[in-house]
Design a protein around this nucleic acid. Structure first.
Lengths: 198, 198
DNA sequence: CGAGTCTTTGAAATGGCTCAACTAAGGTGG
DNA sequence: CCACCTTAGTTGAGCCATTTCAAAGACTCG
């Protein structure tokens, strides 16, 4: 799992998880830096052969296109999150995205009774950059969310999500109401909960 | 020229200009709404035939991929802009993006002596949504920038850019220093200025 | 000219930023 | 095994920017 960041006044513009692709396939290079936030296995392709392969295989080509389209959707989701002036809201949105992205992994998201434990793989400073604020505000926002009872801080980087819907409400319920994300996540949680309890 | 917006608590996530493509080519639909901010000519393709065409023509396929990659880069640029807590900075960044996007058009960006007149094709409320703030703050930010002398408000939706570099500085000079955007824009301005004065 | 919309302005309250100190946790060396 | 040191996270207080609520100008269209 990794994060991409941009130089200058460093600003994180995305997170990558297992199975994600990154890089600029055609014309031009990526002007963001990729940095591993956890241990990671990276599979790299040389540009020229890859582009040849792309030209030969419609399946691969389609795969790449879908991957980029998905990434674009995610970038837009980030924009929604960044759009709010309230830090609590942004953090809540971030946690939701994190859960959704980690839904397919087992080591970073785990059911714990009725709660859902999620690992925050970056520190407060990086998280602050990601959400466009300061580490202090992130810390306060975490504790503010904990005070409302929707999450609990088991460790600084291990968040227990006690009430997913309340968290979604904190993130601005309207935003997520119409999206499949939350439903998917809820279903995923149910599945995990029943799996762990059964 | 158009804007894409997302339902719920409306939030604008991008701007489209002449020649831009939009839509979700493969797998799934676009979950953002597209709305025309100015008169526009739209060229639409039916999904199935277009995908067939895509499969048959590597050139078209490549074009689409590049288009999406470019859109992704733009989305990341937006994220940078949205990342700052200072509204003035966001607005300055927005104006810079606007100029860059309009550099190829003639009706929305025009040289006027040493200045550069740019049309802001959306109202304060939409702009506020785009930059994650309120209309009042947008208005104040405009006038704050005008007070520094880098821009002037000819009309509410017609901004005269008097000092592009100062504006870039307001947008956070470090951010833009390393990017080709500003240089390109400056060159474009020079060309226009000399063309209009000659 | 009037109605409606959009923009601007004002004043008060909130929230986030800044600076600074304090606490907790992990690692190192005696 | 403990003291020390370093890093990361938290907490506090004051200040400033932005939000909020309210209302007054400007512009457009009929």
């Amino acid at each position: 799992m990794q994060k991409t960041l941009q130089d200058g006044r460093q600003h994180i513009v995305g997170l990558l998880v297992e199975g994600d692709m990154f890089g600029r396939v055609l014309g031009g290079t990526l002007d963001v830096a990729i940095e591993a936030a956890t241990d990671a296995e990276v599979c790299a392709f040389r540009r020229a052969p890859f582009e040849t392969l792309l030209a030969q295989s419609p399946e691969l080509d389609r795969l790449v296109l879908v991957s980029v389209l998905t990434e674009l959707d995610r970038a837009r989701d980030w924009m929604i999150i960044l759009g709010t002036p309230r830090i609590r809201e942004r953090l809540a949105g971030f946690l939701l995205v994190l859960c959704t992205r980690f839904a397919t992994t087992d080591n970073l998201l785990r059911a714990r009774g009725t709660a859902l434990d999620v690992v925050v793989p970056i520190n407060r400073t990086d998280l602050a950059h990601l959400l466009g604020t300061r580490p202090e505000s992130i810390s306060r926002a975490f504790h503010a969310l904990a005070d409302t009872g929707c999450i609990t801080l088991r460790k600084p980087d291990l968040i227990g999500i006690l009430d997913l819907e309340a968290l979604a409400a904190e993130a601005g319920e309207d935003e997520l109401k119409g999206r499949a994300t939350l439903k998917f996540l809820l279903a995923s949680v149910q599945a995990r909960a029943s799996k762990s309890s059964g």
